[in-house]
Design a protein around this nucleic acid. Sequence first.
DNA 1: TGAAATGTTGGGGCG
DNA 2: ACGCCCCAACATTTC
Length: 478
Amino acid sequence: MSSPIIVWFRQDLRLKDNPALLRACEDGAPIIPLYILEDEDADKRKIGGAARWWLHHSLQSLNTSLDDHLYFQSGAAADVLDKLVKQTNAKAVFWNRCYEPWRINRDKQIKQTLQDNDIDVQSFNASLLWEPWTNLKKDKTPYRVFTPFYKKGCLEQNGAPPEAESAPSKIQYADMPKNNATLDGLSLMPSIKWYGGMESEWTPGEDGAQKRLDAFLDAGLDDYKEGRNHPAKENVSRLSPHLHWGEISPREVWHRSAQIAHSEGLENDGQTFASELGWREFSYHLLYHFPTITWENMNQRFNNFGWNAQESDDLAAWRNGQTGYPLVDAGMRELYETGYMHNRVRMIVGSFLVKNLLTHWHRGEEWFWDTLVDADEASNSASWQWIAGCGMDAAPYFRIFNPILQSEKFDKKGDYIRRFVPELKKMPDKHIHAPWNAPDNVLEYAGVTLGETYPKPIVDHSKARERALEMYQQSKSA
DNA sequence: TGAAATGTTGGGGCG
DNA sequence: ACGCCCCAACATTTC
């Protein structure tokens, strides 16, 4: 039997449009599909709790697609690869690129070591529409503002992304010795069963991702531009976790949505949706060119800002969905229960934490990292910097969301609130957005006792707004 | 991918 | 008939 090729799966947990897998299969050599859980890496943050749950199921699904041939390992990737190459006499290692700075450096080293041992190493792009080094400004420096980045750097300069490729028609597996490591042995599943809400909400894996895209194109794309703002509507794609783990190719999402938009005359909605993929690209672009974005304020002026970075009652109330602002609480509870939050609501709860509660965006970023099934280093840090006002192309600091107005505008009938804050279920539409303003008889009818069955607001919005603006002024002069 | 304050305009009630 | 005031509706500015 000829020397095998190791296909190292990372955040590309699919068979379709997977260039590393496809090129390996085309070579004709038998392949070894490998997954390495790299938790021990000390200089990187551990995968968050909700994401671990997702990863477990995604790997299970991939393993099924690979007829139970996925070879599980854990530990330092360099060591695992070195050992496996020797053990199997592999001639090559193929993988799809990841773009987190720590991983770029690490992969470079691994590549060098393998090549020094005469192993063929090839890497491909499976997770971005355009490579981050291909869309620079004319002066060769990276874009810092989304709109020119997307319109000029991406669309004009690079044009449409490549078409998606199919899954390999046939996969020939190398004979492997029995593996002592198993998926269960990776201990990705939490020991306490807190993931019931996620189980009923999600189907991780390539099949689930395909079905989600189908469902979105079928029912969500029509009126996407307006409907995506309403958390109770079915207009958002909910593809983020599938894209994060590479269960579906962004190229496929791009081209299929464009095609449907075109054939159904939904050009406007299609372009708006495509630009959301553009924001994902922009986050990766920023992370690639400005790796400190994960922790340092991109706008240095905020370094002296008086955010509270400590644990506090306000922070705990925010995490638990007990702020007394129904839309904020609904969002935070959706997050905890399902591992996901609607995008507009993410902006609202983010603004609330950073501006109304004057809490450092790091605290929000950490909580999201641990609780989101789509937690993504690039998107998470770029988005928190955006909402905090300290990012590259950020929302101006003084853009402070009014959680009551947002609620009245985008959850008019309170459907979203009622789903996640059931203690307000019987509140009439008119008063569900700000129950503390409801007349006593309405509260009584709804069975709500503020401070007992549902919290009183932990801050007064207009006072909190004044306070935030004042602190902003101070930081300007400091 | 805001909100609130401030400014402007124009229609209608009314003396 | 006319000017005056009120205020909603819209536009602009400011935070």
